[in-house]
């Protein structure tokens, strides 16, 4: 199989399989999770300012008092790499083209040099966070295989995409194919790992906020 054949495969059958498993997994898990439900809380709600699902959705995006100093790498690194990922995924012209093709939605692209910078910053932040996870005994203790695996599954698409654009290590065609393959692996594992937080994040925050809000606790 030549580089171009490999690329055509990942753009064709590979993408079809990956998107299929992704959609299957996402809908499966969303239906499963949201149909779980909970028994109705019959107690009278205690109203407290700032205690609601919506408040929690936003509040959980900010570090609780004192935590930023206690664990700066987690918060700052987390912010930087999530924003960086968003810039790279949604700002790069070829990505927007794919999204337009699949969904019909499109928006103006960012200059590729800026996206390139965002990719480098994202990878740096992710690397620092990985080092922190290895170095901090508590974090290391709490880490399971899934944590290391999902880190790699997220990091590889950024790395291979950046290397393809920069023409590093392998010919562009092969690296582009590896990039698309790594994204396909990410799509396949996303619904079945903690990466599914991309879909459940706000729902679970709302849920927690609502339960605690009912008890009058602004979390």
């Amino acid at each position: 199989m030549t580089d171009l054949q490999f690329l055509t495969w990942v753009r064709g059958p590979g993408l079809d399989i990956a998107v299929g498993i992704f959609l299957l997994g996402v809908l499966w898990r969303l239906f499963e999770i949201y149909s779980l439900g909970r028994s109705k809380d019959l107690s009278a709600p205690r109203r407290t300012p700032g205690a609601s699902g919506l408040h929690t959705v936003f509040r959980r995006s900010l570090p609780p008092p004192g935590m930023l100093k206690c664990s700066p790498v987690s918060y700052l690194g987390g912010y930087i790499f999530h924003i960086g990922l968003a810039i790279v995924v949604f700002g790069f012209a070829p990505h927007i083209l794919l999204i337009r093709n699949l969904t019909g939605l499109s928006w103006p692209a960012l200059p590729s040099q800026f996206v390139d910078l965002a990719a480098v910053v994202t990878m740096a932040a992710m690397t620092v966070m990985l080092a922190d996870r290895i170095n901090k005994p508590a974090k290391r203790f709490l880490s399971t295989f899934e944590d290391w695996f999902t880190w790699a599954a997220t990091f590889l698409p950024v790395l291979t995409g950046w290397m393809a654009v920069q023409h590093l290590l392998l010919p562009y065609t092969a690296m582009l194919a590896l990039h698309i393959l790594s994204v396909e692996i990410l799509l396949i594992v996303l619904p079945f790992t903690k990466l599914f937080h991309a879909f459940t994040l706000f729902g679970s925050r709302w849920y927690n906020g609502k339960v605690n809000g009912h008890r009058g606790v602004p979390v």
Binding site: L7, T8, R11, G12, L15, D16, G20, P94, H95, N101
Partner: peptide, 14 residues
């Protein structure tokens, strides 16, 4: 080049 080479066939069924 960044578009699917073939139309997605199994996405709807999946």
């Amino acid at each position: 080049l960044s578009l699917p080479a073939d139309p997605l066939g199994i996405a709807g069924a999946a």
